[in-house]
Amino acid sequence: MTALAAQLERWRQQSGAVRIQPAAQAVIAPLASGSAAIELDHLRRLLGLRLRSTASQTAVDGDLPGSELAPGLRYVERHLDLGPADAVLYTDIAGFEHIDPPRLLHFDTETTGLSGGTGTRAFMIGVADWRDDRLRIRQLYLATMAAESAMLETFASWLRPEHILVSYNGRCYDAPLLATRYRLARMHNPLAALRHLDLLFPVRRRYRGVWENCRLATIERQLLGVLREDDLPGSEAPRAWRSYLTRGDARDLRRVLAHNDQDVISLAQLLRRLAIAAP
């Protein structure tokens, strides 16, 4: 097997493949047998992988916020006072009429990659909705891969037929990605039947050319005056999650939680703002 690994790498080079730089944190799950461990050490050397020293492993900060809903599935909830939500809204945005704020379900996912396809999954789903004039923020995230089904089930259980989804680019990104995950988990896709208000489109219509781009962070800053501190860019989320999964290091994963939390709050505020801006 060691010979196999070494040869595979050699052949890859000879066939014109560009050398893969293995991620430094990529370390295989521990194996039971001692002799196998020796084999794997050899393998790691051959493939240029480095095992993190035990010392740094004990120092890893693996503290995960929230509670455990199911094995490996974490849940975080908080409430935020943003002033009462108006009941009369949004006619301008997508032909919606008067919508009761409790019907709105703002959501955003964090994913393991941006390349799409069946190998990309959501490891975090953040949802914000209005409860008694306060914004309730609920977040689900995975501490193990096996908890994905539980996460999808829980999220589905939050959805009601009267809900209207609110997202930023969710029509093209988050919703299809979740549809794939539900399909792979052999579950019914609860999003398919719901109305979906993707704020990217009205924002683009109104502000294209006004600011440098229509990314949520830009719109947030310009329209809502939100400035994020110590924000982990969304593109860093996949790495942060893998760090936790493979090394148990939760520091960046907590920053992803904060980022996602701000995203769904901004969604709720943006929708109010867009509605007020409507003539």
Binding site: M1, L4, A5, L8, I20, P22, A23, Q25, A26, I28, A29, L40, L43, R44, L47, L49, T144, M145, A146, R242, L245, T246
Partner: peptide
Amino acid sequence: FLQVLAESGVLHHE
């Protein structure tokens, strides 16, 4: 093969 892929950070064994 799966182990080799896990070693290079592509797969996760759980």
